[in-house]
Design a protein around this nucleic acid. Sequence first.
RNA 1: GGAGGGAUGGCUGAGCGGUUGAAAGCGCUGGUCUCGAAAACCAGUUGGGGAGAAAUCUUCACGCGAGUUCGAAUCUCGCUCCCUCCGCCA
Length: 424
Amino acid sequence: MLDINIIRNDIERVKQAIVNKNETTSLDSFQELDSRRKTLLIECDELRNKRNVTSKEISELRSKKKDASELIQEMKGVSDQIKQLEAEAKVLSDDLDSLLMRIPNIPSDDVPVGKDPTSNVIVKSWGDKKAFSFTPLPHWELGKELGILDFERAAKISGAGFTLYMGAGARLERALCNFMLDLHTQEHGYIEVLPPYLVNRTSMTGTGQLPKLEEDMYRIPEDDLFLIPTAEVPVTNIHANEILSNKDLPILYAAYTPCFRREAGSYGKDTRGMIRVHQFNKVELVKFVRPETSYDELESLLSVSEKVLQLLGLQYQVVKLCTGDLSFAAAKCYDIEVWSPGVNKFLEVSSCSNFEDFQARRSNIRFRDDEGNLRFVHTINGSGVALPRTMIAIIETYQREDGTVEIPEVLRPYMNGLDIIRSV
RNA sequence: GGAGGGAUGGCUGAGCGGUUGAAAGCGCUGGUCUCGAAAACCAGUUGGGGAGAAAUCUUCACGCGAGUUCGAAUCUCGCUCCCUCCGCCA
């Protein structure tokens, strides 16, 4: 949620941000709603004041055993009037709130303006393209031959877009998870958290997934709970409605969770293998930081996420997203894309975003600064990193001509010493 | 699922329907005292909205939402969450 004063004082800037983000929210009704609401509230305030003052008078008259029936009679009317005005104001407030909740965050000044991913900017390329003496296979072929990935059976169990990991494949997934968590908690100072995977509507709204993306969520209607699309949702909401101590900032959390996405509207895209699936695991990094430091903290979050791929020896690039590719809540975002030699594409494994105070305002996460003022924190998050696509890159990058796959050095301790995945 | 109890400020915990935005204690902040500290004493210490340059004024909020009333933390109803016991289950 934006500071309403930004909309009041510089509505053109907000309108431009909406256009640049390819959003369609209309601000036409804003000024009317805002001013009518304000007028009503002022009127309400005056009447309430009258009621408060008169009630006190009535109380005094009563204690002196004097008659107060005339005042009581008058106040009856006032109370009815207040009730009516309050009801009107509530409608306006609800409308205004729902409008505010649909206004996206404003992109940071250094974000390139653009309609679609073609305007994204590659800001870094790491690692060399691995030279193969043979044509590298895609992971779905390698995985099937090795017996570690079974998409047919996953489809039998659940449908298209699910993965069944078997044997060394399942073990590799677990190894990756442990490797990443250990790295972030032991080397980068993140606190490990294991949050709920089902969250309520308030949490989902706090981080900005709702109201816009309801169609993309798996929802449990009986309880109005949602399966998390990312650990960002439960982890950011850990501190909802809290006032954090300045000396505790920054707060760094790393969470390993499954993520559930309906992927509505992406049917027919990336259908083979596990490039795009409805359920996947991910290690998510979430930071709560002082506003002055948030852009530095974004860079450091990016670099610890990159570290994962560097240690795994995977080629990747970092892309700065243009305005049109930026998510609803983000002010700035870097995608990390790992190279997949078999699919012959870069695959996004992390989006490292600074939300500034957008989420903090929605979730009401504040801190007291050195001057004693209450301010909203800035929130930052990114994956460190998403597992299936990382596994794709590992399998495809480390494949050998005989169809076996070498396990990266850093993962071997987590694989009980296994160094090669062979067909069983 | 059944029965009962509860939800008040950073914490503990009072609170007859009418100066209770809220006692008291703890904590925290500032001050006095001290070479310094502790103790003691004094003062301050919730948040949101509106008006104002400011001092300040005003309004809302005692889990959430409705209701009764001139007036609700206090009464009624619904919901949520927490605790205890019983049942069921990992």
